[in-house]
C-alpha cells in the first residue's frame, strides 16, 4: 500500500516539476498512439461501413475475422511487424525498425480491427429503412453513407476511444518494434516495464498513473464531444 501512495506522490512530483524525460515520453506516447488511432479510423470506418452496407458471399466469415482481429494480441502484431521490417526482411529496405514510425505501424495494426469491428456494428444497427428514406429524399450513395456515419456517431466515437485505449496501453508491440530506446522510442508503457525490471516500482507506478491520467483526459474530451450531441 505504501508503495502505491509513493507512486502517486512520484507521479505528482514528476508532473509538477515538468520532468523533461517524463514529459518527453508522455508526449511521444500521445503522438504515436494518436497517429495510429487516426490511421486506424480511416481504415476502420471505411472498411466497417462497406462491410456493413453490402452483401457478398463469405461476408459472415469476413465479419468473424474482423471480430477475431479485435482480440489480436499486441505482441503477435509486434512480432509480425518486426519480421517484415527486419533489415533482411521483405520491407527491410525501409530501415524503419526500432523507430517511432514502426511503432505507429504496429499500433495501427492493433487498433484497425477494433475500430472496424465497432464501426461495422454501429452502422449495421441503424434501421434499414433509414437508407431507403435517405435515398428517396434524393441523396446519392456517397451522401447517404455520410449521413449514416453521422447517424452512428455515438458508437463511432466509442470506436475511437476503444482503439486509442487499446494502443496507448499496449506494451508488447511497442517494446518489440520500438526497442524502448531512450529519448527516441521510449513511451510510457515500455518505460513502465523497464522500471519494473529495474525494481524501481515507485517510478513504474508513477508512470502508470501518468498514463491513466493521459487516457482519462483524452477520453474526457471525446466523451464531452460524444455526449454533447446525444440525440434528444
Amino acid at each position: 500500500m505504501d508503495m502505491i501512495l509513493e507512486g502517486l506522490k512520484q507521479a505528482f512530483y514528476l508532473l509538477v516539476t515538468f520532468d523533461p524525460e517524463v514529459m518527453g515520453i508522455t508526449w511521444l506516447s500521445l503522438k504515436i498512439s494518436g497517429t495510429a488511432t487516426f490511421f486506424s479510423l480511416f481504415f476502420g470506418i471505411s472498411v466497417g461501413t462497406v462491410v456493413a452496407l453490402t452483401e457478398f458471399p463469405g461476408r459472415r466469415l469476413v465479419v468473424s475475422l474482423i471480430n477475431t482481429g479485435m482480440g489480436l494480441p499486441p505482441v503477435v502484431a509486434g512480432l509480425i511487424v518486426t519480421i517484415f521490417l527486419w533489415r533482411n526482411g521483405p520491407l527491410g529496405f525501409l530501415e524503419i525498425l526500432y523507430t517511432p514510425t514502426a511503432m505507429i505501424i504496429a499500433q495501427s495494426l492493433i487498433a484497425a480491427p477494433i475500430v472496424t469491428g465497432i464501426s461495422l456494428a454501429s452502422i449495421q444497427q441503424l434501421p434499414r429503412n433509414l437508407r431507403l428514406q435517405i435515398l428517396a429524399l434524393g441523396a446519392n450513395r456517397l451522401q447517404m453513407v455520410w449521413i449514416l456515419i453521422k447517424e452512428a456517431r455515438l458508437p463511432l466515437l466509442a470506436a475511437v476511444m476503444a482503439g486509442f485505449g487499446g494502443v496507448i496501453s499496449e506494451v508488447g508491440a511497442s517494446i518489440m518494434v520500438g526497442g524502448n530506446i531512450k529519448g527516441y522510442s521510449r513511451v510510457l508503457t515500455t518505460a513502465t516495464v523497464m522500471e519494473t525490471g529495474k525494481g524501481n516500482f515507485e517510478i513504474a507506478l508513477a508512470l502508470g498513473f501518468i498514463l491513466l491520467l493521459l487516457a482519462f483526459i483524452i477520453n474526457a474530451v471525446l466523451t464531452q464531444v460524444q455526449q454533447r450531441q446525444r440525440p434528444r
Binding site: K31, I32, G34, T35, F38, P100, R153, L157, V221, Q229
Partner: peptide
C-alpha cells in the same frame, strides 16, 4: 463535434 474530434487527431499528426 465530429470536426472537433477529427481536428484534434489531425493536429496530433501534424505535430508528430
Amino acid at each position: 463535434g465530429l470536426t472537433w474530434a477529427v481536428g484534434l487527431m489531425a493536429a496530433l499528426i501534424l505535430m508528430a
